[in-house]
Design a protein around this nucleic acid. Structure first.
Length: 489
RNA sequence: GCCCCUAUCGUCUAGCGGUCUAGGACGCGGCCCUUUCAAGGCUGAAACCGGGGUUCGAGUCCCCGUAGGGGCACCA
């Protein structure tokens, strides 16, 4: 079995594209087939130069590796459509010669007028197939005038076209609702309809797994296959991904439509692919409590992937659930692995965070962050030379006066300074004892210490943090906080 | 406007004629744990779009509404 993902290099990789690619990838894995990457750059106006590498980087980030593609080649290459123009031109002309397609000489402006006129007369908009009446003699004359032409498919005027979709069953449409679609444009480039179909045939694609938006043009493709006398592939149309507000998620309006949003945002590829498995499909394995397993790899999913079980409804993209899943995956990472993935985010924040320190920080923040990027906010102070001098209001906990807080900090300073070893256990023993002697709750005692030492009211566990910072800095910061709370005479 | 697809908790979904007083997850509420924040444990509220059929029996099949989505380019 051979499947392909065939994006257009018109910008960032779309999250819906990732899901489509992933379903293709899983299908290939499940059936021991090949997953092919093909680039559909037949629109000269929209093609962007760097988009190709961006798409490949995105797929690699997601771990969706292809067996044949533009960079690695393969037996059916080339895998970039702009390098395959001769094929499309040959087959377009073949259709004309066999009476399955025809030349049409209308300009885009003329087409617009035709469409508008039809609309005005209560007819469906589109082309009225007038060029079907042209003879080869007419073509010669118009060619002599230097008029450019397109090649259009001769769609049957009557009857209906039916195809079997593996996720939706039979889909049928009346042929008179179809257009004589353009196959070859005036610039000699093919349209999607021609190019993808010729390539799918030549590349021996067995299953076309693509987004739902292609359903309306699939009958056209079936007619094209019939015109060629080729065996059509199996069609599998997967639901589109919707924005929570409804409607297709688009790169233009929604930043989260691009995969780079997730890469930069601190999402793990494991979480993103895991999440994508459950939008439009369901892993469905149960754990020992009879609950569905939520956290699984795409390899595990591929082992049981069944394209016929793909959902038929458009699905909203719930970033909140993705975040939860991302947290789950972060917690499953080893300290070393997490440290390595965290480093670029500290770098991006202009903080020098050595790996050997990050390895120690990792277990402290692992269950406190949902995104890698949140680590900077949570633990960035560990890598800054100093923290801001706290405000008195931030220092004083609920239930204590300024004077009580000052006394508490004083006691903390003394207790910590007196410790023979600045270990976590020693700190904890001393400080718990301190709270008892002060007659206040540990929470009330630790709060001002936390603010003084970390500059934050929320932080990783206090003793671990203080051990990392070191006694000297901790005492200095405590002293400074005590000074802040000194009553003004 | 025309064509196509779809319809279970707020969201993602399980269900493929009886085992459904409809299951799970996220989110939300409560309780517990607790040095903050989390994480974790227990627990609660929350859905079969409406109407007709078919059938002994319908969330599950059919039809009609309605709603949502997609498509109608010399873009993919």
């Amino acid at each position: 079995m051979r499947v392909r993902f065939a994006p257009s290099p018109t910008g960032d990789l779309h999250i819906g594209g990732v899901r489509t690619a992933q379903f293709n990838w899983m299908f290939a894995r499940r059936h021991g087939g090949k997953f092919i990457l093909r680039i559909e750059d037949t629109d000269q106006k929209r093609t962007q130069e760097q988009s190709l590498s961006g798409i490949m980087d995105g797929l690699r980030w997601a771990g969706l590796h292809w067996d044949e593609g533009p960079d690695i080649g393969g037996p059916y290459g080339p895998y970039i459509q702009s390098q395959r123009l001769a094929h499309y031109q040959y087959w377009a002309n073949w259709l004309v010669e066999h009476g399955k397609a025809y030349r049409a000489y209308e300009t885009p402006e003329e087409l617009e007028l035709i469409s508008a006129a039809r609309k005005a007369n209560g007819l469906p908009p589109g082309y009225d197939r007038r060029a079907r009446a042209l003879t080869p003699a007419d073509w010669a004359r118009l060619d002599a005038e230097g008029k450019p032409y397109v090649i259009r498919l001769k769609v049957p005027l009557e009857g209906e076209t039916v195809f079997e979709d593996m996720v939706r069953g039979a889909i049928r449409v009346r042929n008179d609702t179809l257009q004589d679609a353009v196959l070859l444009k005036a610039d000699g480039f093919p349209t999607y309809h021609l190019a993808h179909l010729v390539d799918d045939h030549l590349m021996e694609i067995s299953h076309v797994i693509r987004a739902e938006e292609w359903i309306p043009s699939t009958p056209l493709h079936v007619i094209l296959y019939q015109a060629f006398g080729w065996q059509p592939p199996q069609f599998c149309h997967v639901p589109v991904i919707l924005h929570p507000s409804g409607g297709k998620i688009s790169k233009r309006k929604h930043p989260e439509a691009s995969i780079s949003y997730f890469i930069k945002g601190g999402y793990l590829p494991e979480a993103v692919t895991n999440f994508l498995c459950n939008v439009g499909w369901n892993y469905g394995k149960l754990d020992e409590n009879g609950e569905e397993i939520q956290v699984f790899t795409k390899e595990e999913a591929a082992a049981v992937f069944d394209i016929t079980q793909v959902t038929q409804t458009g699905t909203k993209f719930d970033v909140v659930k993705l975040k939860w899943l991302n947290g789950e995956w972060i917690r499953r990472l080893s300290d070393e692995d997490l440290a390595r993935r965290l480093q670029p985010f500290f770098e991006a924040a202009a903080l020098e965070a050595p790996l050997e320190v990050l390895v120690q920080v990792a277990p402290l923040i692992k269950e406190r962050i949902k995104l890698l990027s949140e680590a900077v906010e949570m633990a960035g102070f560990l890598f800054r030379p100093d923290v801001p001098t706290p405000e008195p209001s931030a220092l004083i906990p609920k239930g204590l006066t300024a004077e009580q807080t000052r006394a508490a900090l004083q006691l903390a300073h003394e207790a910590l300074a007196a410790l023979p070893d600045f270990t976590i256990a020693a700190q904890e023993a001393a400080l718990r004892d301190g709270a008892e002697r002060l007659g206040i709750k540990t929470g009330q005692f630790f709060s001002p210490i936390r603010v003084a030492v970390t500059g934050q009211s929320v932080s990783p566990p206090l003793f671990e943090v203080m051990a990392l910072i070191g006694r000297e800095k901790v005492l200095a910061r405590l002293a400074r906080a005590i000074a802040v709370l000194q009553p003004t005479p």
